[in-house]
Design a protein around this nucleic acid. Structure first.
Lengths: 193, 193, 193, 193
DNA sequence: GGTTAATCGAGACGGTACGTCTCGTCTTATT
DNA sequence: AATAAGACGAGACGTACCGTCTCGATTAACC
């Protein structure tokens, strides 16, 4: 029921991984703005066509690489209280080595290209939101947050502040920021008097 | 004391305006992602060198054009209460015709180019923050917000949510959104019991 | 002694013909310059490897197709006199529908690729020369041409003028041309006074 | 009356010559079949666009280089008699160092591309014919050739045999060939008895 | 009738050149 | 000097084919 073999030589998983690895290496060495399909292909020992066959743009290559990594790394923190969970989540999201420039590069690409924007939303941003939603649900269960509060708005607040600081770079994104943000959320969503 | 005249033919203000106008026209017709110096110059009937002489990148041209427009249009709303002020501000910021794609394009550019990022922050984002700060100060004065609240965090929340929704495009940015956001701010920052 | 059977699945004559036919069809539709192995294979419903297994280059495919056709069609004319034979020969050679572009394409290929050039000479050009040689031999027998004349030079003259006009396209290749050319040959090779 | 200055930076004659020289060098080293615009540009230290701006195809570059050379080298021989003139002409045409592969390459290109074919005819082949026509005219004046003979057919014979042997490479193109060819012409065109 | 071995369709793959696009710099004459 | 015009070096783009490769499926002859 699974097989679904297509005729012809099958896609090489080895090549796929080589290309994603090359993309990540280029990204670390030269940054997103200087990333080119040509160099990724050269570094991976691949033909350009092999990249174009499977990915519509270089952003999609990077997104694939990122998702491959993130899939395994994102964990739902469970520290027992909303402030602790939030902080753990924020740090887990943005403290990974070298992620900041990659995330900003992908965001830039999403802003310029609506087609990629959809992929970025569906495959990355929305999955992150799902994790945060679970954290908030648990906070509701614990009574830390009033049940009538709209969790989507709270998620927007958390991610809004995160991305805004990430791109503006005018304020820190550290433990203290996590504490302040979660404290604000608690005050805004605390069960009424 | 005043003149500061240099020798040679002075810069033509006519050309400057023609170039900014051409940039805006291109922007509206083809979008930020397809904007090129070459086309702006052709449309303005200008030489490319004339653009490169005065602006370091195409993003700076667009920023100049945007600031020229925004300078005159952004007004500090004074509706008498924080919710009303916030809504007026949000609408004034993002409801201008065709602004959304331009803003997103500039943001993308800022994410990719740190040099432009600084100009974008200083000449655009921070000025907008200043307006919002005044709104919040008035709310403090009216007793709508507790004086011990950090206004910078609140500003981050408002702008964070605004930009996040702007780029994610998953939720509306309308009157209702303004109402919900200001209500959340009021709850988070209301004077304690 | 005859069979020479190898083990394994034998070559499919059906496929061979399908490929030659596809090549001819492509040739007629798009011309030699736009001919590609890829399209021939697609049109024939064949894998590229099947072509590469049996022919070293696309020119060899075309040559095969041409020889298949020409083998049956070229006939030794016997009109009774050199002028009439020559005209018949010229027309039989170059008047076949759609042959001109194919011949010119193969010639171009031969000029660019020495390996194919040899095949083209041996399998096509020299065979045509042989036909012409017979015509001239008969003219010698009839006394139209002096026996001491070198027939090879005359052949070069006939084919030289033919190909030259074929490629230069500056003068007609019709009955009249045949008449003039044979008249020139007769004058050059007539038995001395 | 001559000036006709266009606005903007004028075309650089230096670059033009560098590109033609690079093309000739590539041609000698690797042959026409392996000639690429990319390598010509690299060797000339030029951008590809600079080549595409002025020449529609690589064949036109080579033709330009050839005409530049030939313009100065082709001389009307005047040896006093048709056989001597013809031989001098033939040798002058085809004995130039390394010309054979270049000529065959251009011919191949002309066979594949009708647009280039016209340029090749007008700028190269027809000019050569003009030289030969002068030689024949002088032979008529001297009484070596009957005045009623069509010189165009004779030209076709000479060039036909030359090109045919050039491409077939089955017979020599040397002094002896020149002698035989001119002797044939004389017999064919001699004043009648 | 199963085994063996080459052929076949399909299409992925590493390469390479194509012709185009835009960048940022330069070289003219003109203002 | 500033300007319009546009040539220039540079280099990435996305496409087209090349010739090779790897699959599963097929087609005979041989045992």
């Amino acid at each position: 029921m699974t097989s679904e073999r297509r005729p012809g030589r099958p896609r090489s998983e080895t090549r796929r991984r080589a290309i994603l690895a090359a993309a990540m290496a280029e990204l670390e060495e030269r940054g997103y703005a200087d990333l080119t399909i040509e160099r990724i292909a050269a570094r991976a020992g691949a033909g350009k066509q092999t990249i174009y066959r499977w990915w519509p743009s270089k952003a999609d290559v990077v997104l694939d690489a990122l998702v491959d990594m993130a899939e395994t790394r994102i964990a739902l923190p469970d520290e027992g209280s909303l402030p602790d969970d939030l902080m753990a989540f924020i740090l887990a999201t943005f403290r990974q080595r070298g992620q900041r420039p990659v995330l900003l590069g992908l965001l830039a690409q999403a802003l310029l290209d609506p087609v990629f924007a959809k992929a970025f939303r569906d495959r990355f941003l929305f999955r992150r939101r799902a994790v945060l939603r679970q954290i908030l649900d648990r906070a509701v269960a614990r009574g830390e947050i009033a049940p009538e509060t709209d969790p989507e708005l709270l998620i927007d607040v958390v991610y809004g502040v995160l991305w805004y600081r990430l791109m503006l770079d005018h304020a820190a994104l550290d433990d203290d920021a996590g504490r302040q943000l979660s404290s604000l959320l608690l005050r805004a969503a605390r069960p009424g008097p």
